[in-house]
Write a protein that binds this DNA or RNA. Structure first.
Length: 564
RNA sequence: GCGCCUGUAGCUCAGUGGAUAGAGCAUCUGACUUCUAAUCAGAGGGUCGGGGGUUCGAGUCCCUCCAGGCGCGCCA
């Protein structure tokens, strides 16, 4: 009984379906499958605990007003209440809602369910074990991790956790762009700085990476390999700088991500893909399917067959593969690994690649819906009320490490997650640092710390903390107490919805709302009092809130401190 | 020109076709002899960018217009 709301929903669905069949509506409605009955937790508790809009949904089919339909079902439903565990009474309201008022049993069962499920509470099999890969960040290894990467990291990691909690078989992947031209430019940039360090007067072209980190790597190369470098031939030396710079950049990126608390199941190297001949294989496959043709010395993909507005070049007239070809080969590789669904998180500047890439996998014979691309909007950093100017080319970017130094992991994570992914995010550095009521991350963490504090206090006072099974939960009678349990009961739904909508921000909002309810409760009700029975019940409630808050914070990648 | 995203309270934003559109901040008024005041209680504040449409019902879906951001390479 981990998910009481689900049991309630089922009970209502069965009762409604039975009511339709046994009422005068049966002739017109025909059979009605219980699973089709829409049941939702009401937003406003004056409308009862749950409600169905089935009467509105049937209005068209039956050709009568929804309110009449609801009224026709009401007697049978009311009569059926006696046979259910949870439904106490029903009422028809508004344009045709049927509201279900439940007995307290469902709230008390919810608390007990949370205690027995512990950290597993909230999980479901909504995703039905679907194999999903989430690929995110995948930055070019040509500069340090920056704040845009940080948003992608926070969102991707949280999304993967949410999918897992909702019953998807999710794994995370980082694509290392180690094969492209930009790695050569990176090596060249470091080598030129190195030569400048040696006193040579060489020009540093604009196409090279301008950031100070390039010189840092050059200094490291000098410190560690100066003797060896002296003996190298020019070609050999260029190769050395390319590999050395690449290794240093990757190391630095992994270190930053790890500081941020984000790790990946798979680090996938583009170079390995190229060396394995994936591009040629893809091309052979497309040729066999008649999906490519030659024109102007290039090889073109028939992308227009799949909704693109023009065909796309896969092999340039100089014989090189395009970026798109690499992307298609990579996605073919992913799908061949057995994933049912690939979710890519890209920047909005790549949105033009979505249709061509999908066309590519469709041309290879995969359904287009295997690939879902989430376009994560960029963010601005605000400092002193001003937008901090960032330019990738000039190497002027607020780095992930700067952000971690400034505001810390938890605040950074929360701020990255609080917005809808397709909304621009203004990240206010001063606000994220402030330890005050303006800062939502501390608000949530503080609720958790408070709960821990209550249990410490209980222990010091020698109060025996009973399990939820023993506590007399009927003692919870305050409105705020019941509001909290209603919120806790909605948690599994909340995770499932966040997963289905790919919306981690929903869970961040949920955590904030739950914390708010708890703070309100804390200020109006004493948990530990002379009344042992009431104390026991309130401790059980507090523990349930603590379990759910911790679960939310874990999923979002934020720590749940025991003291603050 | 075409495509994608955004437009909701002074500010930042929630809001899976449902009932009287919500929260935080900011502003104002109150609450620490208390299990943590990084907290709470209360107040004010809205033509959901404009206009059409779809239907029992639209902030939500469709069309159109306006405003802002981004993208439209045999670059990556």
């Amino acid at each position: 009984m981990y998910n009481v709301a689900k049991d309630v929903r089922r009970e209502i669905q069965v009762a409604v379906a039975a009511a339709i069949v046994s009422s005068e509506l049966a002739a017109d409605a025909g059979g009605y499958d219980a699973h089709e009955v829409p049941v939702e937790i009401t937003r406003d508790k004056s409308h009862g605990d749950f409600a169905t809009t089935v009467a509105m949904a049937l209005a068209k089919r039956l050709g009568r007003p929804p309110r009449r339909i609801a009224e026709a079902m009401a007697p049978a439903l009311q009569a059926a209440c006696g046979n259910t565990r949870y439904i106490e009474r029903i009422e028809v309201a508004g344009p045709g809602f049927i509201n279900f008022h439940l007995s307290r049993a469902w709230l008390e069962d919810t608390i007990r369910a949370i205690h027995s499920a512990g950290s597993a509470y909230g999980t479901s099999n909504a995703g039905d074990g679907m194999r999903v890969q989430v690929e995110f960040v995948s930055a070019n290894p040509t500069g340090p991790m920056n704040v845009v990467n940080a948003r992608a990291a926070a969102v991707g990691a949280a999304l993967a956790n949410i999918l897992k909690a909702a019953g998807y078989d999710a794994s995370t992947e980082y694509y290392i762009n180690d094969a492209g031209n930009q790695v050569a430019v990176l090596g060249e940039s470091v080598e030129l700085r190195y030569r400048q360090l040696q006193g040579e007067s060489v020009e540093f072209p604009e196409r090279c990476y301008q950031g100070a980190y390039i010189s840092d790597i050059a200094r490291e190369a000098h410190a560690e390999h100066v003797e060896m470098l002296k003996t190298m031939e020019p070609d050999e030396r260029s190769r050395f700088f390319r590999e050395f710079a690449l290794a240093r950049m990757l190391g630095s990126q992994k270190r930053s991500l790890s500081r941020f608390g984000v790790d990946f199941d798979v680090w996938f190297s583009e170079r390995k893909l190229v060396e394995g001949g994936a591009h040629q294989e893809m091309l052979r496959n497309l040729r066999k399917r008649g999906m490519v043709y030659e024109k102007d010395g290039a090889v073109w993909l028939r992308a227009t067959d799949f909704g693109d507005d023009k065909d796309r070049v896969l092999v340039k007239s100089d014989g090189e593969f395009t970026y798109l070809a690499g992307d298609i080969a990579y996605h073919k590789n992913k799908l061949d690994r057995g994933f049912d669904l690939i979710i890519d998180i890209w920047g909005p500047d790549h949105h033009g690649h979505v249709v061509p890439t999908r066309a590519g996998i469709q041309a290879l014979g995969y359904p287009g819906k295997c690939l879902e691309v989430l376009l994560l909007q960029f963010l601005s950093i605000l400092s002193g009320g001003e937008r901090v100017k960032m330019s990738k080319r000039a190497g002027e970017f607020v780095t992930m490490d700067d952000l971690l130094d400034e505001v810390g992991r938890d605040a950074a994570r929360y701020f990255m997650l609080m917005r809808n992914i397709e909304s621009h995010l203004d990240f206010d550095l001063e606000l994220a640092k402030r330890e005050s009521q303006e800062n939502p991350v501390y608000y949530v963490q503080y609720a958790h710390a408070r709960i821990c504090s209550i249990f410490r206090q209980a222990e010091e006072n020698g109060i025996r903390v009973a399990g939820a099974g023993e506590a007399d939960l009927s003692r919870l009678a305050e409105e705020i107490e019941l509001d909290i349990v209603r919120k806790l009961a909605a948690y599994p739904d909340e995770i499932a919805t966040s997963a289905a909508e790919r919306a981690p921000n929903r869970l961040a909002k949920y955590a904030l709302d739950l914390a708010g309810l708890f703070h309100s409760f804390y200020n109006s009700c004493r948990v530990i009092s002379d009344d042992a029975g009431l104390t026991s019940a309130r401790l059980a409630l507090s523990r349930a809130v603590g379990i759910v808050l911790r679960s939310c914070l874990d999923i979002l990648g934020i720590s749940a401190p025991e003291r603050m």
